[in-house]
Design a protein around this nucleic acid. Structure first.
Lengths: 324, 324
DNA sequence: GTGAAAGCGCTAACAC
DNA sequence: GTGTTAGCGCTTTCAC
């Protein structure tokens, strides 16, 4: 199990380690003869460059970390693939960490990212503010933040504010003012932003409940609303999983959707078009958001761009289906 | 941006680098006084251990790679979380690589895994045979293979053969012998295994088509079957995405499911219970499969287990819903 | 076109 | 309980 090193290859090929290194890196010309010979010897010996040693020396790991709430929420795998697909071709690998929407986990993962000396971080968190990501950029780590607004680090936005306003106005004009919001976890930046946009588009008094961004959370939220003093005519859910849960409850109580109560979601995950009634929602271009994040990172990591923080908006848009 | 090293901390704290190292690793007693002092200095200086250097020295990266076809297929994120959740607590991080069901990508990722000196690999591939994973174990890398049968490396099985037989028998007894199979990509191990089990449970002549494991693949497959010389009374799809595609085509042609044609899937992804009609399928305990893979790896990586290859079966079971 | 030597930042003998 | 030293396997000056 003694691993073959560059020295072994060099010795066997009758050249210096330097030359072997250059044969593989291509960072300096090597005569065709020696190049072929070295390659051959390397294969023969089963040599595989030790990326760890290389990283220690070059200070680059060719690794990016994606920090996200939960890989199991269908929005994120698609987003992650967007990131991976744009980085893969440049030789980057991706570490994926789940925070389960907890602040401590978000911070722990950022620590890990620093410690592991990743070249970049795509951050999709709920708690850590963009300002806190500056420790990364200060350490020379490229950062792309999936967030709600422009900030001190490169940001990718889905234009929540606009999209939420649009949907809210649509619901209000179609179903009247008795619209409620099932929002994400209290005090998180996303939830805050969506609530603000909601209230701005539908001024007045509205029932609002906060739940985890899960189907189960949607069930709880919907029950709270229906059992509350002001059962709503329409419910806007801050993501599709919440909306699926809301539909579960409507079904279980024999309520017609949208006849008795209308339901709208956010994200347009695949299930949105599959569920019965199909879900009116806001299409979040998750893959493209991932691609944009990857591109932002790539620009920084290659050194191609080195200026102020940039912002890319991949605008989300309404999709009217049956549920509202 | 000059990174703080262990030497900086040692100098500032008036101790040796060794002591600093031991304060953090805990691998040798350090007096409480110095321990606290060192910790304090480290925080003050913003020291973060360089995991790359540590890995080079210890020959452990605390990293595991998960090789899977496509993170976007809902089966895999859940599986991946099973793996991640069982490894995270032991300090492991996970690299996730997509192969897009291509052999070349599978092999490339295995090369990367070797080169990056990951401690373990969870392999969910279609092409690379278990025997080819021995290069990893030979190099001291722990391996868990999500496969169809017992092999030379640790395996996690979902009991396809049994589950497919069961479902096939059910379809045959309910809808007669005109059952067809929409299978996965030709020549892949999964597809082969499922086809074998299918034919064994329903002897005779059956239409079988091979498609990519996607919803679009399901559409193509269903069209081929319906437009073929022997339109089937029931269609068994080798995964749920294929089945969703098959339902799309049935709907688009105005066929009643299961009245005109019955459809069954495999995996029981979330969408299976959401789609209309809800999908009869085989429930693959994806999360538990992930957990089992993680545990297998952990046993090897901690050195707790060092014997012959083991096999864990997380048996899949039928779920009868509306579509068949 | 090629080589010698230093060093990236840790940890683990080995010493005391 | 603590320190000295060597070395993990690369890449990169600097030299020829």
């Amino acid at each position: 199990m003694a691993r073959i090193t560059i020295e072994d290859v060099a010795a066997r090929a009758g050249v210096s380690p330097t030359t072997v290194s250059h044969v593989f890196s291509g960072r300096r010309p090597v005569s065709e003869a020696t190049r072929d010979h070295v390659r051959q010897v390397a294969v023969q010996l089963g040599y595989r460059a030790n990326a760890v040693a290389s990283s220690l020396r070059t200070q680059r790991t060719n690794t990016v970390m994606i920090v996200l709430p939960d890989l199991t929420n269908p929005f994120y795998p698609v987003f992650a693939r967007g990131v991976q697909d744009t980085l893969r071709t440049s030789g980057y690998h991706t570490l994926i960490g789940n925070t389960d929407s907890r602040e401590a986990e978000e911070r722990a993962l950022l620590e890990d990212a620093m410690s592991r000396r990743v070249d970049g971080v795509v951050f999709a968190g709920f708690w850590v503010a963009p300002d806190d990501l500056l420790v990364l950029t200060d350490a020379g780590v490229a950062v792309a933040n999936l967030g709600q607004g422009t900030g001190p680090v490169d940001s990718v936005l889905s234009g929540d504010i606009v999209a939420v306003s649009e949907m809210t106005s649509y619901l209000a004009s179609t179903y009247g003012s008795e619209i409620a919001l099932i929002d994400g976890p209290e005090n998180t930046m996303v939830a805050q932003a969506r609530a603000d946009a909601f209230l701005r588009a539908a001024p007045g008094r509205h029932e609002m409940v906060s739940e985890e961004f899960t189907r189960e959370g949607g069930r709880r939220g919907m029950r709270r609303l229906l059992d509350g003093p002001y059962p709503p005519r329409a419910v806007f859910c801050a993501n599709d999983l919440l909306a699926l849960g809301a539909l579960d409850v409507a079904r279980e109580r024999g309520l017609d959707v949208p006849g008795d109560v209308a339901v709208a979601g956010y994200d347009d995950i695949e299930a949105a078009s599959l569920v019965q009634p199909s879900l009116t929602t806001v299409r979040n271009r998750s893959y493209d958001l991932g691609v944009a994040s990857g591109e932002l990172l790539l620009g920084r990591m290659t050194g191609e761009y080195d200026g102020d923080s940039r912002t890319v908006v991949v605008q989300a848009e309404m999709v009217i289906r049956e549920s509202a």
